[in-house]
C-alpha cells in the first residue's frame, strides 16, 4: 500500500486533486498554529474554572445542584455526530465530483451544530431561572465564561459554514473554496476536542464530586 505524503493536519486531498493539494500546506499549517494558540485560551479558562469550581462557590449553588447531565449527554452526542458528518463532508470534498453530497453533509452538520447551540442556550436559560447567574459566585462566572466561549466558537463555526455553503453554490469547487472548507473542518474537529474536556472536567467531574 503506497502512502501519500501527508502535508498538513486533516484529510489531505492527495491524488484526488494534485493542484489544490500542492497549494494546501502553508495556509493550513498557519491555521493549525492559530488553533494551537486558541487552545491556550481554552486552557486558561479551564484553569480558572478548576480553581473556582470547588473553592469559589461562595455559598451559592454547587455543580451538582445546577448541572443537567442528560442534557449534557444529548449535547455531547449532537456535537460528536456533527464531527462525524463533517468527516463525511470532507470525504465528499475529496472524492465526489458533484456538489450535492458535500452540500448535504454540510447542511446536516449545520443542523446538528445548531441543535447543540439550541440545547446549550436552553440549559443556560434554565440555570438562570434557578438563580444560577454568572454574578452569583466565582464558580458560576468561570463556568459561563468557559462554556459560553466554546459556544461562541461553535456559533462562529456555524456562520462560517453558511458562508462556505454560499461560496460553494456561487463559486463551485475551486481550490480556494476547498482549502477554506478544509480549515473549517480542522476548526470544527478541534471544537469537539475542547468539548470532550468540557463534558469530562466540568459536567462529569462536577456531578461526580
Amino acid at each position: 500500500m503506497k502512502r501519500q505524503v501527508v502535508l498538513h493536519p486533516g484529510l489531505n486531498l492527495g491524488s484526488a486533486d494534485e493542484y489544490s493539494h500542492a497549494q494546501s500546506e502553508p495556509v493550513i499549517f498557519g491555521f493549525w498554529v492559530f488553533l494551537m494558540a486558541d487552545l491556550v485560551l481554552f486552557a486558561i479558562l479551564f484553569a480558572t474554572y478548576a480553581s473556582m469550581s470547588v473553592q469559589g462557590q461562595a455559598g451559592g449553588p454547587s455543580p451538582t445542584d445546577v448541572f443537567d447531565l442528560p442534557s449534557a449527554f444529548i449535547e455531547t452526542m449532537l456535537l460528536l455526530s456533527s464531527s462525524i458528518t463533517f468527516g463525511m463532508a470532507s470525504l465528499a470534498l475529496k472524492y465526489k465530483a458533484d456538489r450535492q453530497h458535500l452540500v448535504f453533509w454540510l447542511v446536516l452538520t449545520f443542523c446538528l451544530g445548531a441543535g447543540f447551540i439550541g440545547m446549550e442556550v436552553r440549559d443556560f436559560w434554565i440555570m438562570t431561572q434557578q438563580g444560577a447567574v454568572p454574578q452569583r459566585s466565582g464558580f458560576l462566572s468561570a463556568f459561563y465564561m468557559l462554556v459560553a466561549t466554546h459556544g461562541i466558537h461553535v456559533t462562529a463555526g456555524l456562520c462560517w459554514m453558511i458562508v462556505m455553503l454560499v461560496q460553494l453554490l456561487v463559486l463551485g469547487r475551486t481550490t480556494q473554496v476547498k482549502l477554506r472548507l478544509m480549515r473549517l473542518a480542522l476548526f470544527w474537529h478541534m471544537l469537539d476536542i475542547v468539548w470532550v474536556c468540557i463534558f469530562t472536567f466540568v459536567y462529569l467531574f462536577g456531578v461526580a464530586l
Partner: peptide
C-alpha cells in the same frame, strides 16, 4: 478520546511532512 479525535478526525500521525 482526545487522542482518538486527533488520530482519526484530524489525521495527526508520524507521517506528516511538517
Amino acid at each position: 478520546q482526545i487522542v482518538v479525535h486527533f488520530r482519526y478526525f484530524l489525521h495527526i500521525g508520524w507521517h506528516s511532512h511538517r
